[in-house]
Design a protein around this nucleic acid. Structure first.
Length: 595
RNA sequence: GGGGGUGUAGCUCAGUUGGUUAGAGCGAUCGCCUGUCACGCGAUAGGUCGAGGGUUCGAGUCCCUUCACUCCCGCCA
């Protein structure tokens, strides 16, 4: 046989190959030892093939003693299995290999974690031995899925006419946004590069350079603390930017791309084939959040005005409303027969969340409409009818109310929406619900400093034009700034960019930056915009989160090949690590002694 | 920086009200077994109960401190 290691892989042999002499190489996934007969499940990237050897073979004892996860080469003949021994679970289950010879290609010590199980393991062991962890079925498949998704997206982008470019990894520190990762410069002592938080400025410069449509599967670096859906350090975005476009043009590209990708890689249903567009303001009112989960049918309504009525006697809320608080509610359909415990649990839960609780009552009708439940008696028939017309509630429905300032209300009603929907089992886990959140405000007021700040990206284009924007009321200026949300997870945000220097200076001045400040801090950008910049805009969907959704995983490490732990350490490579004095000297750095 | 959870054999976990020698499954080692596919059966080895301190006649169990991992808040386009 001319091949050295294999003639076939472990996933391709079937009934058609019976009688052939083959070479297979792979890992010993599992052994089943019958004393005089030994089954070996040989595994490689492509599948598992059962191989068999018996006492007649002189190599029997040696193979019997070879540990799991040893890499071996097997020489043998493909034989078909008898009807009753066929394994329908695996692709190669109709055949097995009668082993003639074998030899060890790579030995294996006792395993720190088993490869052959679906059990869950402590994170630090998995990360330290990631190369073993990655052999395991589920995560191995996740990583392959990730590769396929990226390659699919790349093909789609090329087909849509986008050009793929690389942008610098060593760049300059930017004043806005997240904390930068810094890299000391040897040739420029005392100066530092920063790793890009995103190729934001570069992609705009690519547009100014006339390339029209750009994309990149771009690594992004942000030195912020981790979350389950946020890697410490680095993550990937599908970064894209287009010239001569309006918001709708970007939406069309992204919707096409995401719909194709999600249809290709998941069996789950798409709730909308045209993604609904929800304004930021509406999202905050109806869902209490700018990343609403539209699988959840519950809506939030403002019913503050009810508590100004003479015929409502719920004095606690009335007093708070007089002082400026608002009242918002969630209606649950046909819950009048739910046990008292259902309501009390939610109230108790809300108190645990730091709210003063969730008041509730149920709408009933005998001769006339009445409220049943702890606070039902405080509402007149007419006020209940007004609530019904404001919220769409009907007889038999229940109403949960909270009263507070706007920010706390948004927080608690958003959480309550999720909690109640879960308790009532209202969320269809088998769907993806995408939506756009649009019309973000350009500015917001900082609670602590009471100063006006950019609420998102300062380079976003305000809605309106230089001569009709009311700069006197900056908090009312909306931006062509948009987010895409799926199942309550923020997938990306983007904007039509401000390519007009004059308008840029004006907006920055509202946020307290002088023309000089802007010229200094964003010199590359503002300079470029002064030499003929096309109108342009883009977006940057998070690749890791897209793969998370497609793989149905809750943690980003499950779709990342070599992730760091929560403290931003790579336990396998021992990063970050100490460096020696020579390196420090070359970089003109000295370390402060640690406390 | 703050809050919650977890930490017992190589791995996954049990361990009662504080009470004799800390257990099980998988894995390892040895033996038996020719049709398994989570093979089966028997035996053996394997423990700083995360670490340190305290209370107690006695601590895996109670208290304090501390470390590691994780989830969340802060932070984050």
């Amino acid at each position: 046989m001319s091949k050295k290691y294999r003639t076939h892989n472990c996933g391709e042999l079937n009934i058609k190959h019976v009688g052939k002499d083959v070479l297979l190489s792979g890992w010993i996934n599992k052994k089943r030892d019958h004393g005089n007969l030994l089954f070996i499940d040989l595994r490689d990237n492509y599948g598992i093939t059962q191989c068999i050897i018996d006492k007649e073979n002189s190599k029997f004892n040696e193979l019997e003693k070879t540990p799991l996860e040893t890499v071996i080469r097997i020489e043998g003949k493909v034989v078909n299995r008898s009807e009753d021994t066929i394994n329908k679970e695996i692709k190669t289950g109709e055949i097995e290999i009668g082993i003639q010879k074998f030899n060890v290609l790579g030995t294996c010590k006792e395993l720190p974690l088993p490869v052959f199980t679906d059990q869950e393991y402590a994170e630090d062991i998995r990360l330290k031995y990631r190369f073993l962890d990655l052999r395991r079925k589920k995560i191995h498949e996740n990583i392959i899925l990730r590769s396929k998704v990226i390659s699919f997206i790349r093909n789609q982008m090329h087909e849509l006419g986008f050009l793929e470019f690389q942008t610098p990894i060593l760049t300059s520190s930017s004043p806005e946004g997240a904390r930068d990762f810094l890299v000391p410069s040897r040739l420029n002592p005392g100066k530092f590069y920063a790793l890009p938080q995103a190729p934001q400025q570069f992609k705009q410069l690519i547009m100014v350079s006339g390339f029209d449509k750009y994309f990149q599967i771009a690594p992004c670096f942000r030195d912020e603390d981790a979350r389950a859906d946020r890697s410490p350090g680095e993550f990937y975005q599908l970064d894209l930017e287009m010239s001569f476009v309006e918001q709708e043009d970007v939406f069309n590209v992204v919707e096409t791309l995401l719909i194709n990708t999600f249809k290709e890689f998941s069996k789950k249903k798409l709730l909308f084939n045209n993604f609904p567009k929800i304004s930021y303001k509406e999202a905050m009112l109806k869902y209490g959040s700018d990343k609403p989960d539209l699988r959840n049918p519950l809506l939030i309504n403002d019913i503050t005005e009810i508590f100004l009525r003479e015929d409502v006697s719920f004095e606690i809320f009335k007093r708070l409303v007089k002082k400026g608080s608002m009242v918002r509610c969630i209606v649950t359909k046909k819950t009048k027969d739910k046990p008292r415990s259902f309501f009390d649990n939610i109230d108790k839960w809300a108190k645990n969340q730091g709210a003063s609780g969730l008041a509730y009552f149920t709408l009933e009708k005998d001769k006339e409409v009445s409220g049943k439940g702890p606070i039902g008696k405080f509402f007149s028939k007419e006020s209940l009818e007004q609530i019904m017309s404001l919220t769409g509630a009907e007889i038999g429905d229940s109403i949960f109310l909270a009263c507070s300032n706007k920010k706390d209300l948004e927080r608690i009603t958003s959480l309550a929406r999720e909690k109640i929907a879960k308790d009532l089992d209202l969320i269809d886990d088998d769907t993806f619900a995408f939506c756009w959140v649009i019309d973000y405000p350009m500015f917001e007021i900082n609670d602590v400093t009471n100063k006006i700040e950019f609420s998102h990206n300062p380079f976003s284009m305000p809605q309106g034009s230089l001569d009709n924007i009311n700069f006197e009321k900056p908090l009312e200026i909306l931006a062509y700034q948009y987010d895409i949300v799926c199942n309550g997870i923020e997938l990306s945000s983007g904007a039509i960019r401000n390519h007009i220097p004059e308008l840029m200076y004006k907006l920055f001045s509202i946020a307290g930056y002088s023309k000089n400040d802007v010229n200094q801090k964003f010199s590359g950008m503002i300079n470029a915009l002064s030499y003929g910049a096309p109108p342009h805009g883009g977006i940057a969907p998070g690749i890791d989160r897209i793969v998370m959704l497609l793989a149905n995983e809750k943690n980003i490490r499950e779709v990342t090949m070599f992730p760091m732990n929560q403290n931003a350490q790579d336990l396998m490579m021992n990063a970050p690590s100490d460096i020696n004095d020579k390196q420090l000297k070359e970089l003109n750095l000295s370390l402060r002694s640690k406390k």
